[in-house]
């Protein structure tokens, strides 16, 4: 009796586990099914490298969106990565454990704030600051980078904290015994040992930044053009899909799914890089 019960639960759990996998697979199949015919018809080069996006006239070039996505993500990394890593070092090495116990969950709460709220803060606070002090429309690469940089902090910090925390204490003690100062032991020994974990955290944060949609639509301005400066308004791949999906029919809709494929490939690459980095850290 007990055995059958156990088996039922076991199988049910397995079913649940596989359904998660299956939904991922289904999503991938669906995106490719909708977008691939379009890609094959238009040709990869015309789609990826043309900068003419006028769906009403049948021109579908997403080059500006690709460039914009990369710039916005790169900017978010410039803001988020140093802040996040510095915060992780500080929490692990320079404050008592009791402070860490309060601070870390608080930072992780940041991940629970809806992206609309981040976007709203970007529109109301950050964009006007940029417009009045630096010029341009305010809704820009810079604004998106700042907002996304803050949004990826919880990811970067919590993974970096774990990576730094898993460096054995004997390393630190060894460094101190050799006469290193605390900072020297941190940046010459601890950071080196935790490097791959930190890199994984940064890459996962990057994946979050490139995939974020709502906040970016609100703060990036969504112009379809290749940005010439950080103050230009841009449209990312995700924003392009979300903005136009509601109205798109026929070829336009397929082009948006093809945009989804490009995004899918980007994120797959980033995630495999992160996994490879993490694997290295386990060794």
């Amino acid at each position: 009796m007990r055995n059958t019960g156990e088996r039922i639960v076991q199988n049910a759990l397995m079913l649940v586990a596989f359904s998660a996998l299956a939904s991922l697979l289904l999503i991938a199949v669906f995106i490719f099914k909708e977008g691939l015919p379009f890609l094959l018809r238009t040709g990869l080069r015309d789609f990826l490298l043309s900068s003419d996006w006028r769906p009403q006239e049948g021109h579908f070039g997403i080059y500006p969106m690709i460039v914009s996505s990369l710039w916005v993500t790169f900017g978010a990394m410039l803001v988020g990565a140093p802040l996040g890593i510095a915060c992780a070092i500080f929490l692990n090495e320079f404050v008592p454990k009791s402070v860490m116990r309060v601070t870390k969950p608080t930072i992780e709460l940041l991940a629970g704030i809806p992206s609309v709220v981040y976007g709203f803060i970007g529109v109301i606070v950050v964009a006007p600051l940029i417009r009045s002090h630096l010029g341009g429309p305010g809704l820009s690469v810079l604004c998106a980078a700042v907002i996304l940089g803050i949004m990826i902090l919880p990811t970067v910090i919590s993974i970096s904290v774990d990576a730094i925390g898993s460096v054995p204490n004997s390393y630190r003690e060894g460094a101190l015994a050799l006469g290193a100062t605390r900072w020297q032991s941190v940046h010459m020994v601890v950071l080196k040992a935790a490097r791959s974990g930190i890199v994984a955290g940064v890459i996962l944060g990057m994946g979050r930044a490139i995939g974020e949609t709502m906040a970016v639509i609100m703060v990036a301005g969504n112009s379809v053009k290749i940005p010439h400066s950080a103050l230009d308004s841009v449209r990312t791949l995700t924003a392009n899909i979300a903005l136009e999906m509601g109205y798109a029919t026929g070829q336009h809709r397929q082009a948006l799914f093809a945009t989804g494929i490009v995004l899918f490939v980007f994120i797959m690459i980033l995630n495999s890089l992160a996994m490879a980095a993490m694997k290295k850290s386990v060794k």
Binding site: L139, G221, N222, S223, K225, S233, R235
Partner: peptide, 8 residues
């Protein structure tokens, strides 16, 4: 114009 800001 491509410079136009787009809002939804």
């Amino acid at each position: 114009t491509a410079e136009a800001i787009i809002q939804d």
